Amino acid sequence: MNVDMTTTIPAGASQKADPKSKTSVDYNSFLRLLVAQLKNQDPTQPMDSTQYVAQLATFSQVEQAVQSNAKLDQILQSSALSQADSIIGRSITSADGVTTGTVAEVRLASSGLIAILGDGTEIPVGPGVTVKPAG
Rank of each mutant, 00 (worst) to 15 (best):
N2K: 09
V3I: 15
M5D: 06
T8L: 15
A11S: 14
A11Y: 03
A11R: 04
G12E: 02
A13Y: 01
S14W: 03
K16D: 12
A17I: 15
D18S: 11
D18C: 05
K20I: 15
V25L: 13
N28A: 13
N28G: 07
F30C: 00
L33A: 14
V35D: 07
A36K: 05
Q37M: 09
K39T: 07
K39N: 12
Q41R: 05
Q41G: 02
T44M: 02
Q45Y: 06
Q45N: 14
Q45F: 09
Q45P: 00
M47C: 04
D48R: 06
S49A: 12
S49V: 03
Q51E: 14
Q51A: 12
Y52R: 00
V53T: 10
Q55S: 10
S60G: 09
Q61C: 00
E63M: 12
E63F: 04
Q64V: 05
A65S: 11
A65P: 00
A65C: 01
A65T: 09
A65I: 07
V66W: 01
Q67C: 00
S68T: 15
S68N: 08
N69R: 08
K71Q: 11
D73P: 01
D73N: 10
Q74Y: 05
Q74K: 12
Q74V: 12
I75Y: 12
I75L: 14
A80G: 01
A80L: 13
L81N: 13
L81V: 06
Q83E: 14
A84N: 04
A84E: 04
D85K: 15
I88K: 14
R90D: 09
S91T: 14
S91Q: 14
T93K: 15
S94H: 09
D96W: 02
G97R: 07
G97Y: 06
G97M: 09
G97P: 02
V98D: 08
T100K: 14
T100N: 14
T102H: 03
E105F: 10
R107C: 03
L113V: 04
I114M: 05
I114Q: 10
L117N: 08
G118D: 13
G118R: 10
T121I: 04
E122A: 15
E122R: 11
V125W: 12
G126Y: 07
P127M: 04
T130V: 15
T130H: 05
P133R: 13
A134R: 08
G135P: 04
